[in-house]
Computed example of a mutant assay.
Amino acid sequence: MSRTTSRTRLTAALGAATALALAGCSSSGSGSSGSGVGFVTGKGGVATAAPADRVAAPDITGTSLDGNGSLKLSDYRGKVVVLNIWGSWCSPCRAEAKGLQETSQKYGDRVQFLGINTRDTDPANAVAFEKNFGVTYPSIYDPDGAEILKFPKGSLNPQSIPTTIVIDQDGRLAARAMRAMSAEDLQKMVDPVLAESK
Score class of each variant (00 low, 15 high):
residue 78 G to F: 00
residue 62 G to L: 00
residue 48 T to Y: 01
residue 96 E to T: 03
residue 14 L to G: 08
residue 91 S to E: 14
residue 80 V to Q: 13
residue 101 Q to L: 05
residue 49 A to I: 00
residue 135 V to Q: 09
residue 77 R to N: 12
residue 6 S to Y: 15
residue 169 Q to C: 15
residue 60 I to F: 04
residue 1 M to L: 00
residue 84 N to E: 13
residue 24 G to W: 01
residue 8 T to C: 13
residue 100 L to N: 05
residue 165 I to S: 10
residue 35 S to Q: 06
residue 143 P to E: 15
residue 93 C to F: 13
residue 105 Q to W: 06
residue 55 V to R: 06
residue 5 T to M: 12
residue 143 P to K: 10
residue 108 G to Q: 13
residue 193 V to K: 07
residue 96 E to P: 02
residue 23 A to C: 00
residue 85 I to N: 09
residue 42 G to R: 01
residue 73 L to S: 04
residue 20 L to P: 02
residue 90 C to H: 06
residue 17 A to G: 11
residue 153 K to H: 09
residue 176 R to I: 12
residue 168 D to N: 11
residue 22 L to Q: 14
residue 140 I to Y: 07
residue 144 D to I: 11
residue 99 G to A: 11
residue 180 A to T: 06
residue 88 S to W: 06
residue 100 L to S: 06
residue 103 T to A: 14
residue 70 S to C: 00
residue 7 R to P: 10
residue 105 Q to Y: 03
residue 177 A to W: 11
residue 133 F to R: 03
residue 27 S to F: 12
residue 128 A to T: 15
residue 118 T to P: 00
residue 44 G to H: 02
residue 130 E to Q: 08
residue 103 T to E: 10
residue 183 A to L: 07
residue 53 D to R: 04
residue 14 L to W: 08
residue 32 S to D: 14
residue 49 A to F: 01
residue 83 L to W: 11
residue 56 A to Y: 04
residue 163 T to W: 06
residue 86 W to S: 10
residue 175 A to G: 03
residue 98 K to W: 07
residue 54 R to K: 07
residue 111 V to T: 14
residue 2 S to K: 04
residue 22 L to E: 15
residue 82 V to E: 12
residue 35 S to F: 06
residue 129 F to K: 06
residue 186 L to R: 05
residue 65 L to T: 09
residue 165 I to D: 12
residue 95 A to I: 04
residue 127 V to P: 07
residue 151 F to Q: 01
residue 159 Q to W: 11
residue 188 K to L: 09
residue 48 T to C: 04
residue 1 M to V: 00
residue 172 R to D: 15
residue 67 G to A: 04
residue 43 K to F: 08
residue 43 K to A: 11
residue 122 D to R: 01
residue 147 E to T: 00
residue 140 I to H: 07
residue 52 A to V: 05
residue 23 A to R: 04
residue 14 L to Y: 11
residue 143 P to N: 14
residue 47 A to M: 05
residue 27 S to A: 07
residue 178 M to K: 08
residue 145 G to D: 06
residue 15 G to V: 01
residue 134 G to W: 10
residue 97 A to Y: 07
residue 8 T to W: 15
residue 195 A to E: 15
residue 74 S to I: 01
residue 91 S to M: 12
residue 59 D to V: 01
residue 132 N to C: 12
